[in-house]
């Protein structure tokens, strides 16, 4: 076997496990941060300051009864959570976690794969993930689940477009669809007069960044765009009928896609592993944490959109804005600043 391929495999296993561990503690951190924002204490009974809470939760979900509704479409019902769960971490394969390092004399790249259509790959996998939700909602034979699935389908169609189009500006500027290439371009330093600025795309594409941020929240079905599961309207939405570990698959998938899309955003707009001192994966982690905190912050603060308002926001506000952004970027690229 090719040594490069082998190292990729090994690295993929490492990334997957780190993601799962992070996801578990993401739930803990979310609960703690929300508790702090809401004048509560949060989990503090399991282990020191509640640190073992994710493990307790996982065990609890494992031993819970797995209920399959009588009228459910059995095969699809069983398949749907797996689909969501498997596809969520796959998207992380294209995210570069730094430059190559040398381990036992081998040069190991800190990414699983560098494919030349990484951005498209990421978007494709992201939109595949919603199939789990739609199928799960449909197969549950529950009207709330069905409504949740329908909402997820409509939402993903609208916001997938916004998400993709918001990245076009970056792609026009960088001229590449490879994330490694995009990160490398961002590690240069811009010098404007006395200012030393990093060449991060958030500076040249601020509008696209904001739109990407909104669309990413919708893409991961988080508040205030959590319509597919809107617990106060649809009880649990698509996962109303799921219990035990099948429910936790959806749950895990949501948190993993949150982490992955945060890493992706940090890579595309915030220069990935690029930092003021000592570039490395820690910068990427820090930037991703900012996004994750933003997610939690949103959830505690704002009410939920209504379905038609959600669609209106996508098609009437964000789509024109993102098209304008593409046009402007295109003109600048063609006739604009020579340095780009």
């Amino acid at each position: 076997m090719d040594a490069n391929l082998l190292s990729s495999y090994i690295f993929a296993v490492i990334v997957l496990n780190v993601l799962l561990g992070l996801m578990a503690y993401m739930t803990y951190i979310e609960r703690k941060v929300m508790a702090a924002m809401q004048d509560r204490i949060g989990p503090n009974r399991t282990g020191p300051v509640g640190l073992l809470q994710p493990i307790a939760d996982g065990l609890k979900l494992l031993v819970k009864e797995d209920i399959i509704p009588k009228h459910a479409d059995r095969r699809i019902f069983l398949l749907a959570p797996l689909l969501s769960f498997v596809l969520a971490p796959v998207a992380a394969a294209v995210i570069p976690f730094g430059d190559s390092i040398t381990v036992f004399g081998h040069e190991v790249n800190l990414y699983v794969a560098d494919i030349n259509v990484a951005v498209l790959y990421f978007l494709a996998i992201g939109s595949m993930g919603v199939f789990g939700i739609i199928l799960g909602g449909y197969a549950s034979a529950n009207r709330y689940s069905l409504l949740g699935g329908l909402r997820a389908a409509a939402q993903v169609i609208s916001y997938e477009i916004i998400l993709g189009l918001s990245l076009i500006g970056v792609i026009i500027l960088s001229g590449s669809l490879s994330l490694v290439e995009i990160v490398n371009q961002q590690s240069e330093t811009l010098t404007i007069g006395p200012l030393q600025l990093p060449n991060w795309f958030i500076l040249s594409q601020p509008l696209a960044f904001i739109i990407f941020l909104i669309a990413a929240v919708a893409e991961t079905n988080r508040a205030p765009f959590d319509l597919p599961e809107a617990e106060t309207e649809l009880i649990g939405g698509f996962h109303t009928e799921y219990s035990g570990f099948r429910f936790s698959f959806f749950f895990l998938a949501e948190y993993i896609s949150m982490i992955v899309i945060s890493l992706f955003a940090a890579t595309i707009f915030l220069g990935g592993t690029d930092g003021p001192i000592q570039d490395g994966v820690w910068w990427l982690a820090l930037k991703a944490c900012i996004f994750l905190f933003f997610y939690i912050w949103l959830r505690t603060t704002v009410p939920r959109f209504r379905y038609d308002q959600l669609m209106g926001l996508a098609w009437k506000v964000l789509l024109p804005l993102v098209l304008i952004n593409i046009l402007l970027t295109g003109f600048i690229r063609l006739w604009g600043l020579g340095m780009l």
């Binding site: 929300m34 924002m37 809401q38 004048d39 509560r40 508040a223 205030p224 959590d226 809107a230 106060t232 959830r299 505690t300 603060t301 704002v302 009410p303 939920r304 959109f305």
Partner: peptide, 10 residues
């Protein structure tokens, strides 16, 4: 009900 989670706790 409308989705503002924190209000209830406050």
């Amino acid at each position: 009900d409308i989705g503002a989670l924190s209000m209830s706790l406050y």
